[in-house]
Design a binder for these strands. Structure first.
Length: 370
DNA sequence: ATCCCGGGCT
DNA sequence: AGCCCGGGAT
């Protein structure tokens, strides 16, 4: 057993060094010449990394040059007026980066005598410096053996080692971080970090990578299993929208006003009540409902139960719903029916309504009324 | 026009 | 988890 584990560990380590060596070999032959490469100046590295967050090289490059020309040192940047920094940043997006950049320069100047912290852990404390940027500065400027994890690294590792954990999950980030830090070699950790990111950008590209010329094709899990376009796996984050409904429960004798729900929205083909939608739950207000006003001519007895908000959770929608009930004297039935038909609603008896398919939300409300 | 991508902060 | 932003792909 011990033997097996030992063999497993050794073969894993061999595989890791094979992988790292291939990248280290590939890098000098293929790397782009960029002005923040081949320097160990933490200020220049930090500046470039902040600018390159969420930003392509082609877009960031002119900004990097502007900033370095205007502020050759961290002190120059720290002393610059905020407005000037913002103006230089103009057009690059994510403006909190510029605010953090300026604040970080001040921190370094005032609290660290102008010297950036020289290790991952301390770098993390700086404003605007997260795990990626801290690892980049620590390895490029100070040769610390700490792996960078950016979109490129996730992609390369996920494909080569067949790691399919969702890269947007906390669990996934942990697993990739662990793997990446096992692979990164003791010597030249900086070159290795540069190499794997450049490899991801140029060779192991998100779409249509040319695997026929890839130095890591042999041994690549994704290539072997034809999973290049499935990896890395990233769960699409469905954005949950909040909606606020005011339902109008309109009754007239034994009749209820209903409607069949149409396409392009939830509950297609089910039946519910006339509905006014508000932009958020706090704004639900019968006074603001056009429907309620139209019903006034039928002399309704109105009850709005604002206390009871029904919450209905779907995968992609969170619905908050209130109900207002309108009891209409039977003498207005004909006029009410005309109004209903004109607006795409129809009267039906309580019994008929029972037999129609309704959203859970409506059923819950009707049961509560009993 | 709409979708997708991406580090860090809150 | 949701937001911040612009650019590129579709």
């Amino acid at each position: 057993m011990l033997n097996e584990m030992l063999i497993h560990k050794i073969s894993k380590d061999l595989n890791f060094s094979y992988f790292a060596n291939k990248l280290l070999q590939w890098y000098p032959q293929n790397k782009r010449n960029l002005p923040w490469r081949d320097t160990q100046n933490p200020y220049i590295i930090w500046l470039s990394e902040i600018i390159l967050q969420q930003t392509r090289v082609a877009q960031g490059l002119p900004y990097f040059e502007k900033f370095l020309k205007e502020y050759p040192s961290v002190q120059d940047l720290a002393q610059a007026p905020m407005d000037e920094v913002m103006r230089l940043w103009q057009g690059l997006g994510y403006y909190s980066r510029a605010r953090n950049l300026h604040q970080c320069a001040k921190e370094v100047t005032e609290n660290f005598e102008g010297y950036f912290p020289d290790n991952y852990k301390d770098l993390l404390q700086l404003k605007g410096v997260g795990s990626y940027t801290a690892a980049a500065i620590a390895s490029f400027a100070f040769k610390e053996r700490v792996a960078v994890l950016d979109g490129n690294v996730f992609r390369v590792l996920s494909r080569y080692f067949g790691l399919g954990t969702d890269i947007s999950s906390t669990q996934g980030k942990k697993e990739f971080e662990k793997l990446a830090n096992q692979i990164i070699p003791e010597n030249e950790p900086d070159q290795y970090n540069q190499a794997i990111m450049e490899f991801g950008a140029l060779q192991c590209s998100p779409k249509n990578p040319d695997c026929s010329i890839c130095p890591l094709q042999k041994g690549c899990f994704a290539h072997k299993h034809h999973l290049i376009d499935q990896l890395p796996y990233k769960a699409k984050k469905i954005k949950v929208t909040t909606r606020a409904f005011l339902y109008h429960h309109i009754t007239c004798g034994e009749h209820v006003i209903a409607r069949k729900r149409g396409p392009k929205d939830i509950w297609q083909g089910l039946f519910d009540f006339p509905l006014t939608e508000f932009s958020n739950p706090g704004e639900i207000n019968p006074e603001a409902s056009q429907l309620g006003h139209e019903l006034q001519s039928f002399n309704p007895t109105i009850r709005f139960d604002s206390e009871k908000t029904y919450k209905h959770i779907l995968t992609h929608q969170k619905i908050f719903s209130n109900f207002a009930s309108f009891q209409i004297p039977e003498e207005h039935f004909n006029a009410l029916e005309q109004w209903a038909r004109k607006n795409g609603y129809f009267p039906c008896t309580r019994k008929q309504l029972e037999d129609l398919g309704k959203p859970k939300l409506i059923v819950r409300y009707l049961n509560d009324k009993k």
